Amino acid sequence: MNDDAAAVIRPVGPPTKHQLALMIWIAVFPTLTLLNLTLGPYLSDLGVVPRTFVLATVAVPIVIYGVMPRLHRARARLLSR
């Protein structure tokens, strides 16, 4: 087996706390920014707490089920080289 094949199948462990914190920030910041830009006009009449509740209710599933799995795959590809 050559070195390239071994690098492809080498398992990657879970992220460190620092890596996970960075990944979460990379996932959450753009998601919340886009949601604020798109939903902001519709939520402008709400108070801070209800607006935050709506944004969190929409953002959390997007981050957990959409963005984080892609970031984990990207991290694994990057580290398995």
Rank of each mutant, 00 (worst) to 15 (best):
P14W: 09
P14L: 15
P15K: 07
T16E: 09
T16A: 07
K17V: 06
K17I: 03
K17S: 11
H18C: 01
Q19G: 15
Q19C: 03
Q19N: 01
Q19R: 15
Q19F: 12
L20S: 12
L20F: 15
L20W: 15
L20N: 13
L20E: 14
L20C: 03
L20H: 15
A21S: 13
L22K: 15
L22T: 06
M23G: 14
M23T: 08
M23E: 13
W25T: 13
W25E: 04
I26A: 14
I26H: 05
A27I: 04
A27M: 05
A27P: 09
A27L: 08
V28R: 04
V28Y: 00
F29D: 01
F29R: 06
P30L: 02
P30M: 09
P30A: 02
P30S: 02
T31Y: 05
T31S: 06
L32V: 09
L32A: 00
L32C: 04
L32E: 09
L32S: 00
T33D: 05
T33K: 11
T33L: 12
T33C: 03
L34Y: 12
L35I: 12
L35D: 03
L35W: 00
N36D: 03
N36M: 02
N36V: 02
L37E: 13
L37D: 11
L37V: 02
L37P: 00
T38Y: 06
T38K: 09
T38D: 01
L39W: 03
L39M: 14
L39D: 01
L39N: 04
L39T: 00
G40A: 06
P41M: 05
Y42M: 13
L43C: 07
L43T: 10
L43V: 10
L43E: 04
L43W: 12
S44Y: 06
S44P: 01
S44T: 08
D45F: 14
D45L: 10
D45P: 00
D45K: 13
D45Q: 08
D45I: 03
L46Y: 10
G47P: 06
G47R: 07
V48W: 10
V48C: 00
V49K: 10
P50Q: 12
P50K: 02
P50S: 07
P50W: 03
P50L: 10
P50M: 07
T52M: 10
T52I: 10
T52C: 02
F53I: 15
F53Y: 08
F53N: 02
F53C: 11
F53Q: 10
V54Q: 09
V54H: 04
V54E: 03
